[in-house]
Design a protein around this nucleic acid. Structure first.
Lengths: 324, 324
DNA sequence: AAGACTCATAGATAATTATCTATATACATA
DNA sequence: TATGTATATAGATAATTATCTATGAGTCTT
């Protein structure tokens, strides 16, 4: 039996013939002529190597090999119908998997989108990667994830970016700090303060340093700490000052005050980034759609800045209809 | 998704690729060149409408749509492997169905072949039809059965025949009948006897009548009875004489004697008959093979005359390799 | 015996497939 | 940075497929 040249179309024709019990009726059903169907059936029988049909009273009836083939054909087409259903779910973004990579800071806000999303799409598996900016840039280069959340997008040559949330950076101090009493703090006041900063390359640090440069101020004492949490606790216990994303601070933060520094807060934004060259899984696209629809409900309205629609639009224009 | 042009060959190529995780390796395995495989995969992906593979570390790996397709492909090819197994059994005559039609007389001997056959091939369904010669000829014309057993073959224009068993016709009388005492009975002695005969057209009757004609004898009293059993009992109880197949008589037959009529017994044979124009099911062929092999063991050796091998040979020559 | 159906066969053709060789591109590793 | 290894693309071609129209050949039903 030469299965190789057996097509699903052939099985379809065969099934229609057996169902109707007539070559002519099958031809009508499939919008073919009767000889076409006859010939297809002949080819099929040749492929199987056994007669499948014999002329019966009215029309044709199956031989033994034929009725077993009919069963097999139904099973097979049924299995593929299931596969089609699966594909439909995949395409609709209702099933599947995607991976999203967050810079540390973003882990304070993204769950408020990802949580509702997971509840709405329980059949989608989401992998969340968290790392510092450096690590994420590495992952981005190696194309390990589908969506990235940066506070400052990398080179846009290979990527598309859309802001979705303001990320104001504020300066915090322990509540008993001398500057905490002032109505306004000048940049020059900061020169002799000790600062707790994230590692170089961190977006927060980069922005702060470029702000300092703009102000012509040079810091004296710097203490590098690996995590925002550690910094917050460090500030509270009087180790120094820090610049942090406002989202990192709890709603009430006993022991900490935000300093009224002139030209603060430093405005920045979080971006959703997707690679231009990598095909976005349907589920990832579904998440972006979801985020675009719901970001106003899931996150504080005054921070939202929803540019996702234009990102989706550019995606729709490029990534559609590319295969393997 | 256009399933229609999807072939099993394509799935085979795909499965090989996923298994080996490499286009090149799959190509080697299938004795194709690498570009051929690449192109097949491309076609497959187009048919599905989703990318199925993406370049991974070494070789390729499946996308989500791809791994589900892999599962589907395995299911489908597995189902067809089952079907192939079924076909193999069918072809080997180990499974399936056939129908055999016997003239009444033959029902005394055929079970001795059919019984052992059914035990040896429990997965074959056999339909046994029994009727008088007239009925069987009707079935033969309408091509209702696969094998016929006649004591006298019909026109051989559309049929092949093979003797397998002698069928001597003997004349029986009640044991107290005057002729039963004689050392030899002449045909002329029969003219005034009453005979119990089967219906006209019955092979036994035809042969007896043509024997009578050859002897120039005309019978006076005829009593027609529908069954051999009835005739046997009728003879025993003194209603008259009869000509019966020797096989119809029990080994010991109290009350009955076989008359030593000159030129008796009338020699005849049973034939297996198959139609030339009708494809013989594998199972039917299997039965003939079995009968040919075992007829000497299943039936009294002195009656056997096995011409089945030449029947099988002519079948092999003609009926092979015809489809639908 | 003529009609009306059903299915099969023949011949034709445009489209598609299967397959190759040659070449380009991408990536990893020495 | 060169060099091999893996995959993709292009161009070519023979084979196969899908499909048609026209026609032949069996069966029933009048």
């Amino acid at each position: 039996m030469k299965l190789r040249h057996l097509t699903f179309r052939l099985l379809e024709v065969y099934v229609a013939t057996v169902r109707t019990g007539s070559v002519t009726a099958a031809a009508r059903q499939l919008h073919l002529t009767q000889p076409t169907v006859s010939q297809q059936l002949k080819r099929l029988a040749e492929a199987v190597g056994e007669p499948l049909l014999q002329s019966g009273a009215a029309g044709v009836e199956t031989t033994e090999a034929g009725s077993e083939l009919y069963r097999a054909a139904l099973d097979v087409t049924g299995r593929f119908d299931d596969y089609q259903d699966y594909l439909a779910e995949l395409r609709g973004g209702r099933r599947g998997h995607f991976s999203i990579a967050l810079v540390n800071t973003a882990q304070y806000v993204l769950p408020r989108l990802l949580g509702p999303y997971s509840r709405a799409f329980p059949d989608v598996d989401v992998t969340v990667q968290i790392g510092n900016r450096q690590q994420l840039l590495g992952r981005f280069d190696r194309q390990l994830d589908d969506i990235y959340v940066f506070s400052h997008p990398p080179s846009l040559e290979h990527a598309l970016a859309a802001r979705f949330l303001r990320n104001p950076l504020v300066m915090v101090a322990p509540e008993n700090h001398p500057l905490a009493q002032r109505a306004e703090v000048e940049s020059t006041d900061l020169a002799r303060e000790r600062f707790l900063l994230r590692e170089p390359g961190s977006a927060t640090r980069m922005l702060f340093e470029s702000w300092l440069q703009g102000q012509g101020v040079q810091l004296s004492g710097i203490l590098q700490m690996a995590s925002n949490e550690a910094i917050r606790v460090g500030v509270t216990s009087g180790m120094g000052l820090a610049v942090l994303s406002q989202h990192v601070l709890p709603a009430v933060n006993p022991g900490l005050v935000v300093l009224p520094v002139r030209h603060f807060p430093i405005e920045s934004h979080w971006y959703f980034i997707v690679r231009r060259d990598r095909r976005l899984p349907h589920a990832a696209r579904g998440f972006l759609r979801f985020a675009s629809d719901r970001v106003e409900h899931c996150l504080p309205l005054e921070y939202v800045r929803n540019e996702i629609p234009s990102l989706l639009a550019s995606l729709g224009a490029t990534a559609e209809s590319s295969a393997s």
